[in-house]
Design a protein around this nucleic acid. Structure first.
Lengths: 344, 344
DNA sequence: CTGTTAGCGCTTTCAC
DNA sequence: GTGAAAGCGCTAACAG
C-alpha cells in the first residue's frame, strides 16, 4: 500500500521530477500538465496527474515563489493583545484574498517596538507580498517608514504619516449615528459616558455626539464624562450623573463595557431601560451586547469589512494600482437591540 | 541619497550577488560573511557587511528554505471564530519558538471541513514545518490523518485518534479545584450551573466537582444544571435553584459568563456575594471576571502554556524526538478574587 | 505537442 | 581564505 517515496513523514517529499519520471515525460511537460498551462495532450496530462496522485505530490510553493517573485502571503502585524479587533480584520482579509489563495502570517508585537521590528524583518525576509498593520486603538501610530519594499496598509490605528495608506473606523460619524438614533427614539436629555480622554476614539465619538446634538437643536446634559473604558466606570459615572440630572432619558456609552455598567446602575436606581432611559454604545461586542438585560443597541465598527478593504488595498498596490494615500474613515453601522427600543 | 538598487519599492530587491559584486568578493564568500560561517578574514567580512547595509540587503528566506528543507514557519489551523482560545495559544507558541524565529500562519477554517482542507493544503504547499490544530471546544475532533508529512499537534480540542498528539485542558481537575476552594472557604451546600451537556467541558467539570464533593464527604445540592453557556442561563438557573434550595452557600458556574448571570440574580435576590454565597467559575476571561461586582474567582485554563507546549511538541518532532502520542491534560490554576473571598 | 536549457537566490562542497 | 560549480524544486522561454 505504501509507496517507497510517498509524501508521508520520513521519506523526502515527492518532487515534480519524480512525477515526470513516473509519467515518462520531461520536467517541463509535467509542470505544464499540472498547472493546466501550455498545450499538453489530454492523454499525457492524464498520465502526469495520475503519477502525481500516486506519489501524493504536493507542489513546492517556495520554489514557485522564488521564480515569480510572489509568495501569496501577507503579514498581519498587530499589537492587539486581546485579539478583539485583529480577528475580525484577519477574517475580512482572508475573505478578500480568498481562502487558501493567500495565507496570513499573524505576528503579535505586544506593543513592543523592538519586537515589532523583529517581526517586520522576519516578514520581509519571508518575502510577504504585503503587510497590514493593526493597532489596538484608533490613535495614530508611528509609520513603519517608506523603506519597505512591499505595500503596507494601516488598519484600525492609522499611521501618523499622511502619505501612508490607512483605514480606520469613523468614530465621529458613529457618534452622530448614536445621537440620531436616540433622538429618533424621542429622547432629548442626552448624556455621554465614555473612556479615557487621551484616546482618539473617545474624542471622536464625543465630537460626533456634539455635532448631532447641535443639528437636532439639543445640548448635551452635563459634560462628556471621560475615564476608564470599564464597567466600573459605567456604573459609577451613571450613578453620579443621575444624582445631578435626574431627568436624563438617553445615554451614549463610549463602549459596550461602559454600557453594561450603566445598565447595572439603572437597575439599582430603579430606572427602566429603555422606557425611562435609552442606552446606546459602541463596539457591538456580541458577548457583552447580547447578554445584558436588556440587550445593547450598539454601533458596530464593521471590522471585517475593514479587513477586506485593507486586503484589497494591498492587492491593488501589488498590481501597481497605487492606492490613494491618506486616512480613510469607514462608517460603522447601528445595531438596534432592546436598550433603545423595547422588544414586544 | 537613494541608491539605484536599494531594497525600496519599485526596483527589485537587492540580492546576495549584488552584495558580492559591491564588496568585490565571490558569492560564496559573501554568503559565509553574512552568515558568520566558515573562515572569512575579518576585513573581508567587514567589507561584505558594509556593502549589504549600503544596499539594504535582506536575505531571501525562500531560497534558504528551498535548500535546507525547513521554512521556520508553522501553521495554526483553527475553528475558533472568536479568537478567545486561539490568541493565547498563538502567543504561547510564539513565545516557545522565539519571536521572529518562527512565524505562524493563522488560518481560520470557520468550522467548515472543506475550508479546513483548503487551508491544510495551502499550508503543506507552503512547506510549514508543523501544524497546530486548535479546536473551539474540548470535544475530540476528527484527526487530520497520518498522511501529513509534518508533525501535527492538536491543542484545546484533542484528536479523536489516540495515536495523534493532543494537549487539552484538564477540566476534571479544574472541577476539583473549584470545589476544594469552596470547601476551603467553609462552604458545604454547593450547587452547579453549567453549559450544554453535550460539551465535554461541561461533563468533565461536573465530574471533577462530584469527585471533590465526594472526597469532602459532601453532596451536590440538586443536580448539575446543564444548558446554554450564557449569562441568561446563569440568571435563570440560579433564580430557579434558590427558589428550591434557599440555603445554598456556594455555586460552581461552568463559565465566567454563567457566573456573571449568577451574580446578577444574587443581587436581585438580596444575597450577598461572597458572604452569603460564594461563586467560582471557569475560563478566567478577564474582561468578564474583573468587571463584575464582586470580581470573579475563576479557573484559568493556562492557554498560553498550552500554546507553548504545543510548540515544543512540534519542535521535538521536527528534531526527531517523537512526542508520546495520546492526550495530555494540562491542569488549570485557580485565580482568587472577590466572589469567594471578600476583599478588605 | 514535447523536451532542453537557463535561471529564481541562496548554500555548500571542494578545489585552489 | 577564497572562489567555481552544483543544485534545492520549479517555471519559462525557446527549440525540436
Amino acid at each position: 500500500m505504501s509507496d517507497n517515496r510517498t509524501g508521508t513523514a520520513g521519506g523526502r517529499a515527492a518532487t515534480l521530477s519524480d512525477v515526470a519520471k513516473i509519467a515518462g515525460v520531461s520536467l517541463a511537460t509535467a509542470s505544464k500538465a499540472i498547472n493546466g498551462r501550455g498545450e499538453v495532450a489530454a492523454a499525457t496530462r492524464q498520465r502526469v496527474l495520475e503519477a502525481a496522485k500516486k506519489i501524493s505530490f504536493t507542489p513546492n510553493e517556495l520554489a514557485r515563489s522564488l521564480i515569480n517573485g510572489r509568495t501569496g502571503t501577507v503579514g498581519l502585524l498587530t499589537s492587539d493583545l486581546e485579539g478583539r479587533f485583529v480577528i475580525p480584520i484577519l477574517m475580512g482579509a482572508e475573505d478578500a484574498f480568498g481562502a487558501g489563495q493567500v495565507n496570513v502570517f499573524l505576528c503579535d508585537a505586544r506593543g513592543d517596538a523592538i519586537r515589532e521590528q523583529h517581526h517586520l524583518n522576519a516578514l520581509l525576509t519571508r518575502r510577504v507580498d504585503g503587510i497590514i498593520v493593526v493597532g489596538r486603538s484608533t490613535d495614530p501610530r508611528p509609520s513603519l517608514g517608506h523603506n519597505i519594499p512591499v505595500p503596507v496598509v494601516y488598519a484600525y490605528a492609522p499611521s501618523e504619516d499622511p502619505t501612508d495608506v490607512s483605514i480606520t473606523p469613523d468614530n465621529r460619524a458613529g457618534g452622530r449615528l448614536a445621537v440620531e438614533h436616540l433622538v429618533a427614539c424621542g429622547r432629548s436629555k442626552i448624556a455621554m459616558i465614555t473612556g479615557e480622554a487621551a484616546y482618539a476614539a473617545a474624542q471622536d465619538r464625543a465630537a460626533g455626539v456634539m455635532d448631532a446634538l447641535g443639528d437636532a437643536g439639543l445640548e448635551l446634559v452635563g459634560r462628556p464624562m471621560f475615564s476608564e473604558w470599564s464597567e466600573h466606570w459605567g456604573r459609577d459615572a451613571s450613578a453620579m450623573l443621575f444624582r445631578q440630572f435626574p431627568d436624563i432619558d438617553g445615554i451614549v456609552a463610549g463602549s459596550d463595557q461602559i454600557a453594561r455598567g450603566v445598565l447595572d446602575t439603572m437597575r439599582d436606581l430603579g430606572r427602566e431601560v429603555p422606557h425611562d432611559v435609552a442606552v446606546v454604545s459602541f463596539d457591538n461586542w456580541e458577548i457583552l451586547a447580547t447578554n445584558s438585560r436588556p440587550e445593547l443597541t450598539s454601533i458596530d465598527a464593521n471590522l471585517q469589512q475593514l479587513g477586506r478593504m485593507a486586503a484589497t488595498r494591498i492587492f491593488d498596490a501589488i498590481d501597481g494600482t497605487a492606492a490613494t494615500p491618506g486616512v480613510e474613515n469607514l462608517p460603522g453601522r447601528l445595531v438596534i437591540r432592546g436598550s433603545t427600543i423595547a422588544r414586544r
